[in-house]
Simulated assay, not measured.
Amino acid sequence: MTGAWQVVGAARGWIGTPYVHQASVRGAGCDCLGLLRGVWREVIGAEPEPLPPYSMDWAEPQGDEVLLAAGLRHLRPKPLTRPAPGDVLLFRMRDGSVAKHLGIQSRAGPSPAFIHAYSGHGVLECALTTPWRRRLVARFALPLEQN
């Protein structure tokens, strides 16, 4: 398994991991960023930069697009209209707020799905429904040799 399917396979390995803020340990706990960090470590290797502690409302008071900026530093931007398995998805949960929820696309096509760590639910794979697609603000590819 290589490339995008390796990313999807790694992400699916985290399904069932409980939601734990700031954590990134498969089976023990993670948040949405921790899921991406764990998949990065499994597929690419060492994380590209250290992550400072962050609060549940991080970046909101200042309006800083912290995750978008990090995505632009370390991932390859893609058009929102070109979905593919393995894409990293960035969501804005409320209009006017910073984008701060991440997921990994697991299926494209007529029944798109994504994997994410969601507070109160843990890591799960769910349909990328119209309400989720409306919140999508950026799409990235991991920097894999095969992409």
Score class of each variant (00 low, 15 high):
residue 129 T to N: 13
residue 82 R to C: 11
residue 55 S to V: 08
residue 85 P to D: 11
residue 93 M to W: 00
residue 138 A to I: 06
residue 75 L to R: 03
residue 88 V to G: 04
residue 27 G to R: 13
residue 142 L to P: 04
residue 112 P to K: 13
residue 34 G to D: 06
residue 108 A to L: 01
residue 61 P to Y: 12
residue 65 E to K: 09
residue 37 R to I: 08
residue 114 F to G: 01
residue 95 D to F: 02
residue 67 L to I: 07
residue 118 Y to I: 12
residue 52 P to K: 12
residue 18 P to N: 06
residue 32 C to M: 09
residue 132 W to G: 00
residue 98 V to P: 03
residue 131 P to N: 10
residue 39 V to P: 02
residue 102 L to E: 02
residue 47 E to R: 01
residue 55 S to C: 06
residue 58 W to H: 06
residue 123 V to T: 09
residue 72 L to G: 15
residue 135 R to Q: 05
residue 24 S to L: 02
residue 28 A to E: 14
residue 80 L to A: 06
residue 132 W to L: 13
residue 102 L to S: 04
residue 40 W to H: 07
residue 116 H to V: 10
residue 39 V to G: 12
residue 14 W to P: 01
residue 68 L to P: 00
residue 49 E to Q: 10
residue 115 I to M: 13
residue 32 C to K: 03
residue 41 R to H: 05
residue 89 L to E: 03
residue 81 T to W: 08
residue 81 T to H: 08
residue 41 R to P: 04
residue 95 D to R: 13
residue 18 P to T: 04
residue 131 P to K: 11
residue 87 D to E: 04
residue 140 F to I: 03
residue 105 Q to K: 02
residue 95 D to A: 15
residue 84 A to T: 00
residue 32 C to A: 14
residue 137 V to H: 05
residue 93 M to I: 11
residue 38 G to A: 11
residue 131 P to A: 09
residue 20 V to W: 04
residue 22 Q to S: 12
residue 72 L to A: 15
residue 54 Y to D: 02
residue 73 R to W: 06
residue 130 T to R: 04
residue 93 M to N: 08
residue 91 F to W: 04
residue 121 H to Q: 15
residue 74 H to S: 10
residue 44 I to E: 02
residue 39 V to F: 03
residue 21 H to C: 05
residue 96 G to H: 07
residue 133 R to G: 02
residue 122 G to Q: 11
residue 111 S to Q: 15
residue 17 T to N: 11
residue 82 R to T: 05
residue 92 R to V: 06
residue 21 H to L: 14
residue 86 G to N: 08
residue 85 P to M: 14
residue 95 D to H: 12
residue 97 S to E: 14
residue 72 L to I: 03
residue 25 V to C: 13
residue 30 C to N: 05
residue 16 G to Q: 12
residue 97 S to I: 00
residue 48 P to N: 11
residue 15 I to S: 05
residue 33 L to Q: 10
residue 98 V to S: 05
residue 78 K to V: 05
residue 50 P to R: 11
residue 95 D to I: 00
residue 20 V to F: 01
residue 26 R to N: 08
residue 127 A to Q: 15
residue 75 L to T: 00
residue 137 V to D: 01
residue 29 G to Q: 10
residue 54 Y to R: 01
residue 115 I to L: 09
residue 79 P to R: 08
residue 38 G to R: 04
residue 74 H to N: 09
residue 111 S to I: 11
residue 23 A to V: 00
residue 39 V to W: 04
residue 136 L to Y: 00
residue 62 Q to K: 14
residue 32 C to D: 09
residue 23 A to G: 01
residue 104 I to Q: 09
residue 100 K to S: 11
residue 20 V to G: 02
residue 46 A to V: 05
residue 129 T to L: 12
residue 23 A to I: 00
residue 54 Y to G: 05
residue 49 E to H: 07
residue 49 E to S: 13
residue 105 Q to P: 01
residue 61 P to F: 11
residue 142 L to T: 02
residue 76 R to H: 12
residue 40 W to E: 03
residue 66 V to E: 09
residue 16 G to I: 06
residue 128 L to E: 11
